[in-house]
């Protein structure tokens, strides 16, 4: 068990690349920050799993249904692992985290506050959103100071990489489809481009403690820009347009520059006031209640063991 004399000592340890373990006497501010970060991640995996689940019966063809099933299991499995380490931090129990999520008093990522209208939307989510989520998880993994979280991220990233390949394959299938399919895909890209780049959040504050404590390793704007530089040319090469009238390529540097983003709507979205937040939460609640008999049955099995 490690202990530190002061917050300054602790910060020096973490900045030096030190890894904090659950039994260490970490400062309360760090415990709370790492807890909130993992809770948000867990909630997002859970809500993402429920979205994916909606597409198991609707995905075109057996192979894609199987993939939707596997991705649902992945997301819920990730949420399970994350809720375990979040609960272990002793701030809230797992039941309390579920209650808060379903009551709408805690948060989940912006991208799960929108409606997935069509198969094209589902492909846009798989291609644009999964890649944005993966990029931000990779950045957390790189220098993550909380040991159990870093270990889970290793597996989460390997599995999300597999989702990203799936997203690329789905997009290329749509890109090489009929005019109707390409139009459907472009409509979906128009809907999902902004939520995807907003996933990285507004520019990081200069004194962001998450960066100082190596919970995050890169600034939001750096991650967002890297994503834009990669995905603008990919979309254009696949024959799609990027829905940003202010987009241009700097002729000297070759870099893609986007319009300024209005962050006000994101703030409301993150407070569960997004376009589809209410329905998403009521669906999550219904799923939780529908599955109560499974939890009860499992509890009985455990007790009888």
């Amino acid at each position: 068990m490690k202990t530190w004399e002061s917050l300054e000592d602790f910060e020096a340890f973490v900045i030096d690349g030190g890894i904090v373990e659950p039994s260490d006497e970490m400062p309360d501010v760090y415990r709370l920050a790492v807890f909130k970060f993992i809770e948000l991640h867990a909630n997002s995996e859970y809500m993402g799993g429920l979205t994916e689940r909606d597409w198991i019966p609707k995905a075109p063809g057996l192979h894609r249904k199987l993939t939707a099933l596997a991705k649902t299991q992945d997301e819920i499995g990730h949420a399970h692992l994350l809720y375990m380490i979040a609960a272990d931090l002793g701030v809230k129990t797992r039941d309390e985290m579920m209650e808060d999520l379903l009551a709408g008093t805690t948060n989940f990522h912006n991208v799960f506050h929108y409606r997935v209208h069509s198969w094209g939307d589902q492909v846009a989510v798989a291609y644009l959103v999964d890649a944005a989520a993966l990029a931000s998880q990779q950045a957390v993994f790189k220098n993550c100071s909380y040991g159990p979280y870093k270990r889970i991220l290793r597996r989460v990233i390997a599995e999300e990489g597999f989702h990203m390949r799936n997203g690329e394959e789905l997009l290329l299938t749509m890109a090489s489809g009929t005019d109707l399919q390409r139009t459907m895909m472009q409509d979906s890209i128009n809907r999902w481009w902004l939520p995807a780049i907003q996933l990285f959040g507004p520019d990081s504050r200069l004194d962001d403690p998450l960066l100082r404590w190596n919970i995050k390793s890169e600034r939001n704007e750096v991650l967002r820009d890297r994503y834009i530089q990669k995905f603008v040319p990919q979309l254009l090469n696949a024959g799609f347009q990027v829905p940003d009238s202010g987009l241009y390529q700097d002729s000297e540097t070759g870099r893609w520059c986007t319009s300024d983003i209005d962050w006000e709507p994101l703030k409301a979205t993150m407070r569960n006031g997004g376009p589809d937040s209410k329905r998403r939460l009521s669906d999550a609640k219904a799923a939780w209640e529908d599955a109560s008999w499974v939890r009860d049955a499992l509890d009985e099995v455990v007790i009888s063991k």
Partner: peptide, 19 residues
């Protein structure tokens, strides 16, 4: 009994507190 894939289950190590 089942984790994020059908081939894995999930355990908890109470010693080092890692899943």
């Amino acid at each position: 009994d089942v984790g994020s894939t059908p081939c894995r289950s999930v355990s908890w190590c109470a010693e080092c507190r890692n899943p």
